[in-house]
Amino acid sequence: MSEFFDKGYNPLDILINLWNPLTDASADLIKQNIGTKLLGKNDYIYHIGNTPLYIYFVLKGRVKIFRNSDDGRPKIIRIFREEQFFGYRAYFAHENYSTNCVAMQDALVAMLPVDVISKLIDDNATVMDYFFKELAHGLGMSDDRIVSMSQKHLRGRLAETVLFLSKSFGTDNDGWIHGKITRRDIADLANMSTSNAIRTLTSFREEGFIDTDGKRIRIIQPASLAYVSGKE
């Protein structure tokens, strides 16, 4: 794990502090049961039909959940960045996974057994409240994307996707969206073909809305992108 963490970084602290205050017994329960998994790009974390055994937390890197459409193309449902939980909806619904989950890049995820999560929820109101909010937030995002993807044209969908990536992943000091995202992933998020995504990104760059450097994207005119997202 050394390549993922700065000296003195303790990933357990993130989980324990996330639900602060926790009882000492709950903090010990996390420490005794947490596991970690190192993933390479495109490594699967779970498949459709698997029974949820763990709830996952991104320590480093990014993961995506997706489902193949009728034409066989993968459709990205959500992307999760560092310090976000994923894979919990199916467990709370008492269902098997209805999506696949893979690492978008080299990643490190924490794993907590579902019975440990259930115990934490029973013993700590902060944990229960956290997952209620996460589930509600995820439902709201899904509703918004369903509406926007069905009503907007190509430019509007792609503009919204670029703004979504910037908001979700943040930017560095020079304004570049953190990480490298493939054009195919951007296309899947915007529900369009890769060739259309490339052409539209090129158009946005020529209009001065964004800048690109390989797989990196920087928003130059956020107001213009927001206008395209809302009007096109």
Score class of each variant (00 low, 15 high):
F5K: 13
Y9C: 07
D13F: 04
L15I: 15
N17P: 06
D24R: 08
L38H: 11
G49P: 15
T51N: 09
I55M: 07
G61W: 10
R62V: 02
F66D: 02
N68M: 08
K75Y: 00
R78N: 09
R81Q: 10
R81A: 04
E82N: 13
E82C: 05
F85Y: 14
Y91K: 09
Y97C: 08
T99S: 11
C101M: 03
Q105D: 05
A110P: 03
L112M: 08
L120G: 10
L120R: 10
V127W: 04
D129G: 12
D129H: 12
K133N: 07
L135V: 15
G138Q: 14
S142E: 05
R145G: 03
S150K: 14
K152R: 15
L154H: 05
R155W: 02
A159R: 05
E160W: 03
E160N: 12
T161Q: 01
V162G: 09
F164H: 14
S166K: 14
F169D: 07
T171A: 04
T171Q: 15
D172H: 07
I181H: 15
T182S: 12
T182M: 01
R183T: 01
R183Y: 00
A187W: 00
L189P: 01
T200W: 00
T200M: 09
I210S: 08
D211I: 03
D211S: 10
R216Y: 10
P222S: 13
P222I: 08
S224D: 06
L225C: 12
A226W: 02
V228R: 12
